[in-house]
Amino acid sequence: MTPRLFVWGINVPVIFIPFSIFFICCASQFYFIRRVRQMLVERHPEIWAGISKRAWFVDNAVAKFIWWRKDKRLNDPELTRVVKQGAFLYYLALFVWVIYAGLLVTGLGFAQISFDQMPAWIESLKSIFH
């Protein structure tokens, strides 16, 4: 019997889980970069002018602003909250990417996990979506 992973009734390789998390993190970062950029333009135009003047690609400059946590010295709690959320996504994406790469290199990601019986909570989730 071939081992399988059951996701909404579909058999998928194990590597699908870290890839999905990584993809969601990367896609979500576009929102956070846009949000931080808007907040810098509206609340801290002098910082924004400095960032945008020196950068070839503005989004990369905003990503660097998030990565290095340069928001701390601005004393703006809402900006800090958004930057922390964006930074968390960066760290999570990096962590999951390392797991994904490890699964690829070792070949474990292509194995499939099977459930002899679907756990009761998965059955209850299936009833919600049907």
Rank of each mutant, 00 (worst) to 15 (best):
T2E: 13
R4V: 11
F6M: 08
V7C: 00
V7K: 01
V7R: 01
V7N: 02
I10V: 03
V12L: 05
V12K: 01
P13K: 07
I15F: 00
F16H: 10
I21A: 05
I21Y: 05
F22R: 09
I24P: 00
C26L: 13
F30G: 14
V36R: 05
Q38W: 02
Q38G: 07
V41T: 09
H44G: 05
P45D: 05
E46A: 14
W48Y: 15
I51D: 06
I51T: 10
R54K: 15
R54L: 13
W56N: 15
D59K: 02
A61N: 02
A61M: 03
A61L: 02
A61C: 03
A61Q: 01
V62S: 05
K64W: 11
K64S: 15
I66N: 07
I66G: 08
W68M: 10
W68D: 14
R69C: 11
K70R: 14
K70W: 14
K70Y: 15
R73D: 13
L74E: 04
V83P: 03
K84S: 10
Q85V: 09
G86Q: 06
L89D: 08
L89F: 14
L89S: 07
Y90E: 14
Y91K: 15
A93L: 08
A93W: 09
A93E: 12
L94C: 13
V98Q: 10
I99Y: 00
Y100A: 03
Y100T: 07
G102V: 01
L103G: 07
V105L: 12
T106R: 01
L108Q: 00
G109E: 04
G109Y: 01
F110I: 09
F110A: 10
Q112F: 08
Q112I: 11
D116N: 13
M118S: 09
M118D: 08
M118P: 10
P119I: 02
A120Y: 04
W121Q: 01
W121I: 04
I122S: 00
E123G: 08
E123M: 08
K126V: 04
I128H: 08
F129C: 06
F129L: 11
H130R: 09
